[in-house]
């Protein structure tokens, strides 16, 4: 990882905060990329407007979060250009491309919900009011992203032959991997950055999903080798082919 040098100078809590916010910002970066890549598949003119707006929104949130990460030594150079596929910390959920419009709807619903749930817990943060207010603003701006996917789920679900339920169930298991089930000490919760622990947030996420669609089923086995710094298990990073599509090109022409 490119941050090895700066990492040594941070306190343990700062390091945790830096990692978690990086994960959230990168999730937004990759999710924005999803909207961009799937955009031509929109099914109504207003879907195109909506997908552009959500893409724009997620990039905006990522940009503000990266800038906040500047407190911990993260530079714009690093956030936008110098990292490679292996350095991106988005949830495993976003690795595999959607198989259909229904699968796309399922994925953005879960991703938007998961990210909002996690960042939402920073809104009442007393340790850092700037971060709390930023989280509040992001949370507010994300509201219509959730109603968009919820509306589509409802519409698709009316059709008995729709795969939407199966798609959500399959992707749901992948989304849960964003949280560690094993009860590890949660430094950010204890330090007052988040008002809820990871375990509580995982529960909140499940409840929010179930308010829209029934996802009960066999328990998902806890992932092995889960790493807090990337919020996933196994090898870090996203597929190279996905990275190639979402990375920023023509660096020399970037506006300041």
């Amino acid at each position: 990882m490119t941050d090895a040098t700066s990492a040594g100078r941070l306190s343990q809590t700062d390091q945790l905060l830096r990692d978690e916010l990086y994960c959230i910002a990168d999730s937004k970066l990759v999710l924005a990329g999803w909207y961009m890549i799937v955009l031509p598949n929109g099914r109504a003119i207003s879907d195109w407007s909506a997908m552009c707006a959500m893409m724009q929104g997620q990039y905006g949130h990522a940009r503000a979060l990266y800038q906040y990460l500047g407190h911990f030594g993260v530079t714009r150079e690093e956030a936008e250009w110098t990292r490679g596929a292996a350095d991106i910390r988005s949830p495993k959920l976003l690795d595999q491309p959607p198989r259909s419009w229904s699968d796309f709807v399922a994925t953005i619903f879960l991703a938007e919900q998961a990210i909002s749930t996690q960042l939402g817990a920073y809104r009442s943060n007393q340790a850092d009011r700037t971060l709390a207010r930023l989280a509040e603003k992001v949370h507010k701006e994300s509201r219509f992203h959730v109603s968009y996917s919820t509306g589509w789920i409802k519409a698709l679900n009316k059709d008995p032959s729709s795969t939407i339920k199966a798609d959500i169930r399959r992707r749901f298991a992948e989304t849960l991997e964003w949280w560690d089930e094993n009860d590890q000490p949660d430094g950010l919760f204890r330090a007052g950055y988040r008002e809820a622990s990871d375990a509580t947030l995982r529960k909140r996420f499940i409840e929010a999903v179930e308010a829209t669609i029934d996802v009960s089923g066999p328990d998902v086995p806890a992932p092995v080798s889960w790493q807090r710094s990337i919020r996933r298990s196994g090898k870090p990073g996203i597929p190279d082919s996905l990275f190639e599509l979402i990375r920023f090109k023509n660096h020399e022409l970037a506006l300041p």
Partner: peptide, 22 residues
């Protein structure tokens, strides 16, 4: 969008296109 050099540029293209689709 694909060849945009930075986050800000992708935002700008998305925003312009959102307008056009509107």
């Amino acid at each position: 969008m694909q060849f945009a050099p930075c986050i800000g540029d992708r935002i700008a293209v998305a925003s312009a296109l959102q307008d056009e689709m509107g």
